[in-house]
C-alpha cells in the first residue's frame, strides 16, 4: 500500500530522547517572558507589554493557562489517532503547567493588579461573576495538581483517580466562561479557543459513542 500522506511514517515516530527536557524548557518560556516582561516594564519602563503592563501580563498568563489546558486535553486524541502512546506520560507535565500558569495569572491579579487589597479581592470575588467562575476553576484544578504524583495515583486506585481527573473538563468550561465574560467586546479570541475545546470534546464523545457500552472507559 502506498503511503502518500506519510501517515505510516508519522505513526512510526518514537519518542525522541530529548522530548521530556525540551517540553519542560519550552513550557517555562512563556512564564519567563511574562515575569521578566512585566518586571522590566514596571521597573524600567520598557513597554515590552505596552503602556499597561500589569493588565497585559495578566492577560498573557491567562491565555497561556488556556493554551496548556488545550495541550493537556490534546494528548489523548493525538495518542489514539497516531498511536503515540509515549505521549501519555507527558500529559501530567502539561496539566501541571496549566496549573502553574493559572497560579501566575492569579498572582499577577492579586499581587500586581489589586496589590493585596484584601477588601477589593473579597469584593471582586463576591460581586463579579467572572472572577467567581475563574476562582472556581482554580479551586477545582488544585486537587488535580495535588493528586498528580505516582503515589497519589496508587493510593486512589485508577478508577477513582480517573473519575476525579475528569474535573479537567469542568475546569476547561469554567476557564472559557471566565474568558468570555472578561472580554470587553471583541470575542474573536475566546471563540477560537472555544472552538478548539469543542473539537477536543467532540473527539471524545464520538469515540465513546462508537465503543461498545460494556467496556469501561
Amino acid at each position: 500500500m502506498n503511503d502518500t500522506l506519510g501517515w505510516k511514517r508519522l505513526r512510526a515516530v518514537r519518542e525522541p530522547r530529548w522530548f521530556a527536557a525540551l517540553l519542560i524548557v519550552a513550557a517555562c518560556l512563556p512564564a519567563l517572558v511574562g515575569i521578566a516582561g512585566m518586571g522590566s516594564d514596571i521597573l524600567r519602563d520598557t513597554r515590552f507589554f505596552g503602556s499597561n503592563p500589569i493588565k497585559a501580563g495578566e492577560h498573557f498568563l491567562g491565555q497561556w493557562t488556556i493554551r496548556f489546558l488545550i495541550l493537556t486535553l490534546a494528548v489523548t486524541p493525538l495518542r489514539q489517532q497516531l498511536g503515540w502512546n509515549w505521549l501519555a506520560k507527558h500529559r501530567r507535565t502539561l496539566g501541571l503547567f496549566a496549573f502553574a500558569y493559572v497560579m501566575l495569572h492569579w498572582l499577577t491579579y492579586a499581587l500586581l493588579d489589586v496589590q493585596l487589597d484584601w477588601g477589593d479581592l473579597l469584593r471582586d470575588l463576591a460581586k463579579r461573576p467572572y472572577i467567581m467562575i475563574g476562582m472556581a476553576g482554580i479551586v477545582l484544578m488544585t486537587p488535580l495538581a495535588v493528586t498528580s504524583t505516582k503515589g497519589m495515583i496508587r493510593r486512589f486506585g485508577g478508577k477513582r483517580w480517573n473519575a476525579l481527573h475528569r474535573l479537567v473538563y469542568v475546569v476547561a468550561v469554567l476557564g472559557m466562561i471566565h474568558f468570555f465574560m472578561a472580554v470587553k467586546k471583541d470575542l474573536t479570541e475566546p471563540i477560537v479557543y472555544a472552538t478548539v475545546f469543542a473539537g477536543l470534546f467532540a473527539f471524545r464523545l464520538f469515540r465513546r459513542s462508537r465503543r461498545p457500552a460494556t467496556v469501561p472507559s
Binding site: G39, L43, R44
Partner: peptide, 15 residues
C-alpha cells in the same frame, strides 16, 4: 514579593 531578580531591581530607573 520576591518576584524579580536583584539585577532587575538594581536597574530601576525613572521613566
Amino acid at each position: 514579593a520576591g518576584i524579580l531578580g536583584a539585577g532587575l531591581v538594581a536597574g530601576a530607573a525613572p521613566r
